[in-house]
Computed example of a mutant assay.
Amino acid sequence: MNTDIFFFDVFKSLYLTETEKQAIRNCFHEKHYKKGELIILNGQDVDTLLYVVDGCLRTYFIDEKGKEHTIQFAVHDWWISDMVAFFSQTKAIYNIECLEDSIVFAIHREDIEKLCFQIPVFNKLYRSKMEGSIVGYQKRILANLSQNATERYERFIETYPNIEMSVKNYHLASYLGITTESLSRIRKEMSKRS
């Protein structure tokens, strides 16, 4: 796989000079992770954002009772980090795990700030990605408050059709806030309707 091709897919809509392209490329660091590897652990410092080139990752936290709660999945062309820790410059409250072998590009906070200052179109792209992320989180909160489990599952598979095949049932159930048994029941009911 030529990761440079995937990397510049993110920036293909931007009109960049060769100098700007090189400045951006110099700030991103390609990293390879194995399935099951933890990239960020609760309690760590977090000063990087990760752009997913290939693979599937999930953000989760573990409550006081030891139960895992999946917050986010990320696949190709998604950004992921412990956003709370990243933006507030505090310790991680989440863990990020690779659900498949994954390739990501990591960029440090200082490099983002430098690129935003030096390259206005990068600043615009970064801002629009963060705005999109905020909108996504707001929609998820509203869905969790106003939709039943079946509606949340239907919305998930409609919005993220390629992710379901990459995640285990208990990860998806955790993301939806239901048990694996409830997820199985919902799938069975939906297959009867088809």
Rank of each mutant, 00 (worst) to 15 (best):
H108G: 04
L115A: 04
C56F: 12
R193T: 15
P120F: 10
N148A: 11
H76N: 12
Y153A: 06
H32K: 15
D9F: 13
F87V: 07
R140G: 02
F87P: 00
G43V: 05
L176I: 05
N2V: 06
K31S: 02
R58N: 06
S174Y: 04
Y170N: 15
G43M: 08
T3A: 10
F11K: 14
K12F: 12
F73R: 10
N169M: 07
E100R: 13
R185E: 03
W79N: 06
S128Y: 10
Q44S: 14
F86R: 01
T3E: 04
L176K: 06
Q22A: 05
Q147C: 13
A143Y: 03
D82H: 03
T159S: 15
K31D: 00
D111Q: 13
L115D: 00
E158V: 10
K114V: 07
T180K: 04
A143L: 08
Y170M: 12
E64W: 04
F87L: 12
E131F: 03
K124C: 07
H108Q: 10
I119W: 02
L14H: 09
E131N: 06
M190R: 14
T59L: 05
T59G: 07
V84L: 11
Q118E: 12
M190D: 09
L99F: 09
T48L: 03
P161M: 08
S191C: 03
M1N: 06
A23E: 05
E20H: 09
A23G: 02
V135R: 08
